[in-house]
């Protein structure tokens, strides 16, 4: 091994790394918000009784999640290049649509996993259908799906690295820049890996803590 490690480049380029981390966070948050929005709607709709909305939700989920994220990004960036969307928004929209499909599947499973007796009991007590869903079913479903949702979020943060392909200056892109200037390839990529690790761990733990709340004990996944 003739390679001499020089980890000081990470300190020298701390500004670029911080900026990259900030953009990764921003990109992930935008993607996350959109994915939760799309996923909650599609997931709730796919448990509806009417056939047509269910079909629409299912076709969104199947189309979005069976196409690679990179192709989603290229769709907004190249395919719709006539719209001239900024690269950041191309990547965000791609993350929203792609990850929204995974959120939808989790939401659907969560709603279906709430025992049917809960809804029946609520209706017996005179709650309307809508009240039953909003006050009884959804809050319980939210607690059940917290860990799976955290999994999708951590995936989303890692997936946001693909935005570097369309020159969004997030972490992975900055590592490429540092590498280009210093040839410190190994240090740059291991360095950003650690940053990803920190962000992913923080968001995963945070999601579980936030959504889990005080789950009723009979709902704790065994």
């Amino acid at each position: 091994m003739s390679y001499h490690f020089d980890w000081s480049v990470l300190w020298t380029f701390r500004g670029a790394l911080l900026q990259g981390a900030a953009l990764t966070l921003l990109l992930s948050l935008a993607g996350l918000a959109g994915a939760v929005f799309l996923g909650a709607i599609a997931g709730a709709v796919s448990t509806a009784q009417a056939r047509l909305p269910r079909l629409a939700a299912a076709s969104y989920v199947e189309t979005a999640r069976n196409v690679p994220l990179l192709v989603h990004i290229y769709f907004w960036y190249l395919g719709l290049s006539s719209l001239r969307l900024p690269a950041f928004w191309c990547a965000s929209l791609a993350l929203m649509v792609y990850c929204g499909a995974f959120v939808a599947e989790i939401v659907r499973a969560g709603i279906q996993s709430v025992p049917a007796g809960q809804a029946a009991a609520a209706q017996a007590l005179g709650l309307t259908r809508q009240q039953t869903l909003v006050k009884i079913v959804y809050p319980q479903a939210l607690r059940i799906i917290a860990p799976s949702l955290a999994g999708v979020f951590s995936q989303l943060i890692k997936d946001s690295s693909l935005a570097s392909v369309v020159s969004v200056g997030e972490l992975t892109f900055q590592a490429g820049e540092i590498e280009g200037v210093t040839f410190r390839t190994f240090e740059a990529y291991i360095g950003i890996t650690l940053v990803y690790l920190v962000i992913v761990t923080a968001v995963t733990r945070g999601t579980i803590l936030l959504l889990r709340g005080r789950a009723p004990s009979f709902l704790e996944p065994s």
């Binding site: 890692k158 946001s160 690295s161 992975t172 590592a175 590498e179 990529y189 890996t193």
Partner: peptide
């Protein structure tokens, strides 16, 4: 904990 793209970069550029 690592994005796929970063794994590919590590193997193609860093290793």
């Amino acid at each position: 904990g690592t994005p796929l793209l970063v794994v590919l970069f590590i193997i193609y550029f860093a290793v």
